[in-house]
Design a protein around this nucleic acid. Structure first.
Lengths: 131, 131
DNA sequence: GGCTAACTTTAGCAATTACTAAATTGTTGT
DNA sequence: ACAACAATTTAGTAATTGCTAAAGTTAGCC
């Protein structure tokens, strides 16, 4: 059974009758929609979302966002559980994804959120109670 | 070595001298920042982000968003690789996370994006080239 | 009622992820 | 040069995830 058989039956059902041409046309429409959707940067977007989709990393970004200033790695430690190593891993993944920037200051490292991170948090906050 | 020892050395370093009271004060500030950050709905936000943080699911949401209308499960099949089961799993996870709504129409099921999903895609699109 | 079709759900497994511990890098102070 | 320390990186492992295949559910049709 080809994948378009089911589509054909659906269109038949939905419109009460349809020709092969109707099926091809709808398929072309769907492919166009897919192509338009595909223009977005799937790979980097998924990387960004994956970076934020973890409690430790989400909390780090939230803390930095709430702080509104750059923070030193040593300032996260008292707030997060986990080892220094875990925190460092988290910070690296977030930085790689473009959600944080890292700045060297002597032996200390300071992080701050990027505009992209801020935009996502604002979108999350703003859409929380929408239906 | 307590976790605040490093913070103390940092403040010492950063400000050129600090008392125990300074350390306590900064720690209190950080805890306040953390508390403010914690007001956000960590659990549901991470669920939403996890749902979107997967190529199959991201593509589904993108397609639905680009379509601007509800689509039947049978209309995704020609556009996505994977089995029907995989698509169904993806749709369920997205629906559970509040990114899609499901509607029964006879033997067909139709999905559309929620305002929350749309808000997140718009934020991703709008923040792509910001530094 | 029984058949088929359109999903969905359950079960199970391979691949990925998130962490810890240990080794390493880079910086400062002596 | 060396010791101490901040942070990162590497290596290894337990937990989670993303899929497939098979069984289950619901709706229409004869």
């Amino acid at each position: 059974m080809s994948s378009t058989d089911r589509l054909e039956r659906y269109l038949e059902d939905d419109r009460g009758g349809c020709t092969d041409a109707d099926v091809s046309e709808r398929l072309a429409e769907l492919e166009e929609i897919d192509a338009a959707a595909g223009e977005s940067f799937l790979e980097t977007d998924v990387e960004v979302l994956s970076a934020l989709a973890n409690e430790t990393r989400y909390r780090i970004v939230r803390i930095l966002h709430a702080a509104g200033e750059e923070l030193c790695v040593c300032e996260f430690a008292p707030l997060l559980e986990g080892s220094d190593s875990a925190i460092s891993h988290a910070l690296s993944k977030l930085t790689d994804a473009g959600l944080l920037t890292r700045r060297k200051d002597g032996k200390w490292r300071k992080y701050r959120t990027t505009a992209r991170a801020n935009a996502l948090l604002v979108a999350l906050d703003g859409s929380r109670s929408i239906y």
